[in-house]
């Protein structure tokens, strides 16, 4: 994963922790109910969903970038290493090119 994506992810984690804890959470502990849904639930689920959407954007975009970059450089190196079932010797990581 690219350096920039890692930074996004770190920021996202910190924001996530802040968003679902005191004191931010307390701001939404009210009786008001937008669209008929109590604000506390509305906020928690919305924050959760937004977190997931941003995660999708960061992770998938990072993958697309990496794919295009590796296409440009003509490399066919795969990220990580795969392990088809039952064959212990394919567990080895690839040698560095």
């Amino acid at each position: 994963m690219r350096q920039q994506s890692r930074e996004y992810i770190t920021i996202l984690f910190i924001c996530g922790v802040l968003a679902i804890n005191y004191p931010v959470l307390d701001l939404f502990n009210r009786s008001w109910a937008p669209l008929g849904i109590p604000l506390l639930y509305f906020y928690l689920y919305l924050a959760w969903f937004v977190l997931i959407v941003v995660l999708i954007m960061v992770v998938e975009r990072s993958e697309i970038r990496e794919l295009t970059e590796s296409h440009k450089s003509g490399a066919t190196r795969t990220k990580g290493f795969s392990r088809p079932g039952g064959d212990p010797d394919t567990h080895e990581p690839p040698e560095s090119p």
Partner: peptide, 23 residues
């Protein structure tokens, strides 16, 4: 885990599952 790369997809897909089952 069969392939490290699968983790990448699970990063967002698994939270989505949790979100759905808790809705």
């Amino acid at each position: 885990n069969v392939n490290e790369a699968h983790i990448r997809k699970a990063i967002w897909l698994f939270p989505l599952y949790l979100f759905a089952i808790n809705l």
